[in-house]
Nucleic acid binder design. Sequence first.
DNA 1: GCACTGAGGTTGAGAGCTCAACAACAGGTA
DNA 2: TACCTGTTGTTGAGCTCTCAACCTCAGTGC
Lengths: 160, 160
Amino acid sequence: MTEPRWLSESEQEVWRAYQTATKLVGESLDRQLQRDSGMPTTYYEILVALSEATGRELRMSELAEFTKSSRSRLSHAIARLEENGWVTRRSCPTDKRGAFASLTEDGMGVVRAAAPGHVNEVRTVLFDGLSTDQVKQLGEISAAIVAQASKGCPSDPCDE
Amino acid sequence: MTEPRWLSESEQEVWRAYQTATKLVGESLDRQLQRDSGMPTTYYEILVALSEATGRELRMSELAEFTKSSRSRLSHAIARLEENGWVTRRSCPTDKRGAFASLTEDGMGVVRAAAPGHVNEVRTVLFDGLSTDQVKQLGEISAAIVAQASKGCPSDPCDE
DNA sequence: GCACTGAGGTTGAGAGCTCAACAACAGGTA
DNA sequence: TACCTGTTGTTGAGCTCTCAACCTCAGTGC
């Protein structure tokens, strides 16, 4: 790292386009979910993860891994979702340090109500603008980035 | 919107990979900049935009457009950067509503000091994991997403 | 049993973002 | 001049995120 490996002209263009695109997509989704369902994207992702888990509950650490969230963020989020009555906490019987988060009926209802609008927004801002080939490429590129990122910190991309 | 246009199995995979990848990239960069330069990515982008402008200053509205930021966010950010002595505000002589933000010498120094580490991180988390073809594809895909997003709200992707 | 190290979670403070409300001014029309 | 509408930018409140400190407990070695 003695000499900075600057970006070429074309790499800079790609980088800036990438930044703009991801920012637009992220903010569109955030606005849509906040407007229609009164919650940020991160909370929605938590609820979805729980809704797909067997028994609709997960250990906090697993939930953090699924949602690529830090333990701290998740803890704050679950506290907030619990206030709303969408999630409850349960301590783990076999490991007294541990805790489960589980989705309530109300929470499941919120997910079901939010899903159509959310999916529609995803289509509108992302898929509708891309060709079939580009969608495939985007999948491969994303996977490559994830793989690359995982090399940096083996088996633990999060926290401290 | 009478019937939700659900995502296919493969689209879901792409969508999840995309979310994970963009989250990892964004958080890596945020952590790196915060750790090494004591500021979030959004602030760095503001300073870079100013550093590249003629006279190293821009109208607030132009700066908001360049950085894809809301007026509100920008206003808060500039206030913070002004406290640090990296930016100064100047009112516009021809339009009394308007304001210019301009980069100070200190601010320019901060950008110069931050750039190498930032660029290196961009390479590490993004470009190093992709083939030459994939970089090209990512550029095209990003441009397509930006174009698609601009269709939604012609010539103004921000605020209110 | 006792100490030590690490893992699982929580907490509080500080910081940035969003949203809505607002103030000040520009440009046009009557 | 007076009014009306749209633009530019700021502000404050509420919310989420990050970071570091902390607590509790599990597993290991002695």
